[in-house]
Amino acid sequence: MRDRTPRVIPFPASPAPAADARILFRDLALTRDGTRVIDGLTMALCPTGISAVMGPNGAGKSVLLRIAAGLVAPDAGRVILPLPMRGRVGIVFQSPVLLRRTLRGNLTHALKLARVPRADRARRLDELIALGSLLPLAERPARRLSGGEAQRLAIVRALAANPALLLLDEPTAHLDPASTQGVEALVQRIARAGTKVVIVSHDPGQIARLAVEVAFLHHGRACEVTPMPGFLSAPASAEARAYLKGTILL
């Protein structure tokens, strides 16, 4: 399943014959409140496994996910998804908003919004609860879940519409190690089941555990997309090198 070909993707991606199989971000630009949040971003991501997106705060990572999810329209450029992913993108925000209902209610409502036929809902609901290891918590009001439980609920809720591409924005940013482990295990289960995952993360350890490649963003541009484990040991761009060393990027 996983494309673990250990080669540096030529950057910027050349329109190679295989390009239509990749997730392409082409010449994206977005200005918000006078700031170029995304500034001519072009890159290609591998269509399978887990890709990580890294970069300092303000690099444009979250906005990039929103553009990929179709929630924000770019001023210029486009995202070209492989055919099976089109219209099938799920996203989980950094601080997921859970509905004021039970865990089960959140999932049922998401299935409804995803237009899952009524007859299939109960089965899908059970699947999602099991996938997130959430069964004992099913009747708990969602807003009383712990951080890790809430994050797992938000992730499986995003699967209600059965997406082929799942975008995760720092899903473990505020979690303790045990909860982080639970979320990572869930993400791996999802990827293994065939859903492409793109995860924004600041945590090199997490990237090492999960990702097949890392895209490094700075000032709204892609500096490099490098397969793992090469990225952590020998990043291609000066920006990524500085970032991994802990230097503040300007």
């Binding site: 929103r66 929630l71 996203i91 908003v97 995803a114 809720r157 995003a158």
Partner: peptide, 12 residues
């Protein structure tokens, strides 16, 4: 303001 993006992401 709290729900809008989440609901749109869920297909509402």
């Amino acid at each position: 303001t709290e729900y809008d993006e989440t609901l749109r992401a869920l297909g509402a």
